[in-house]
Design a protein around this nucleic acid. Structure first.
Ligand SMILES: [Zn+2]
Ligand SMILES: [Zn+2]
Ligand SMILES: [Zn+2]
Ligand SMILES: [Zn+2]
Lengths: 174, 174
DNA sequence: AAGTGTTATGTTATACTGTAACGACAATTT
DNA sequence: AAATTGTCGTTACAGTATAACATAACACTT
């Protein structure tokens, strides 16, 4: 379906930051938000969120299913998709349309405009606010008379870290 | 998979222009381009392109398969996907990632940056150049050190025609 | 305690989307 | 002629997602 390379754990940029705090921050934020909103971050939903935050790479639904099965042996596709639906509704994750995959959202669970930079090499997804891009988009919509419901801007390419770590690797820059 | 409504032929805005010229223009342009490039716009590819141009709505691969079967009884999924791959390579159609669907490209078969405005109501896709958006994106990529491979910007909402024709229909503007 | 409503989950089956692999065939090149 | 290339037929399968219905868990009322 996609021309993108397979996700590759080797390409994770784990060393650049203390990722354990990414995970715990995301989880505690989610717990607080769900409590405030009176919605239930059930064990299944919590676990799916944790699995998604295991990396900054976009994760596929069936990968999640495989990973959750040891813990939740009854898990079926619907189990995962329901949890994903919930997490998306609550603004805790993004669906990456162009990958059929899911990634954690750092933006505290509010709906917001997003620019997703998706690395073809390491599959990590960087989320940026990109105020000026969004402003330019708004102008464009106004011109077109288009009423926007979602601005999920997904762009594929090579992230700064991958470009640097393989500047001599011509294939990436094609 | 998507929260979008099903494609609905009733919602096509056929009256706004002489769509028969859209189709014939697209086909003759494609024929010329392929001839120039020395690539083959075979009967199957030609037919798929024609079916895609039957409307300005994004069309799904298996819809194309159903529609081509009466004419090409041997048609299988691979038949359609191969034709789609070819047409995408030649820049004659776009893949709409967020719909898993395909739409004709008006831009004469050259690779280019695109802003696709996708109407949730009529499923028509409007392609815009959006120079300023693209410039703002370039700046953002430069800042992020991101090397872009594709800029397929897809935005979902309600098109001007649908908004107008159902201004009293609150559901659309939600 | 028993009944009721709501949300979440289990379960089965199925639909939809996309690709791999191989062989047949024709046109072109060497 | 032999090799190469491009297209298509064919089979089989992999991967993605949802429908439909049953059950469980819980909170709330009576
Ligand atoms: Zn991290
Ligand atoms: Zn990368
Ligand atoms: Zn038209
Ligand atoms: Zn519309």
């Amino acid at each position: 379906m996609n021309t993108h390379a397979e996700p590759n754990p080797e390409h994770q940029h784990t060393s650049a930051h203390d990722h354990s705090t990414c995970i715990s921050d995301a989880l505690t934020t989610a717990e607080h938000l769900c409590a405030e909103r009176g919605v239930q971050l059930t064990p299944i939903r919590h676990k799916v969120l944790e699995l998604i935050w295991a990396s900054h790479q976009a994760v596929k639904a069936y990968e999640l299913l495989d990973r959750i099965k040891p813990l939740q042996s009854a898990a079926k596709p619907a189990t995962v998709y329901r949890a994903l639906d919930f997490l998306i509704e609550q603004g805790l994750i993004h669906r990456v349309e162009s990958l059929n995959a899911f990634v954690g959202c750092r933006c505290s669970g509010h709906q917001h405009e997003q620019l997703l930079l998706i690395c073809k090499h390491c599959h990590e997804v960087e989320e940026r606010t990109a105020t000026e891009v969004m402003q330019a988009l708004s102008d464009e919509f106004k011109q077109a008379g288009f009423i926007v419901h979602s601005k999920a801007i997904e762009v594929h390419g090579i992230c700064a870290k991958c470009a640097e770590s393989s500047a001599d690797n011509a294939e990436l820059l094609a």
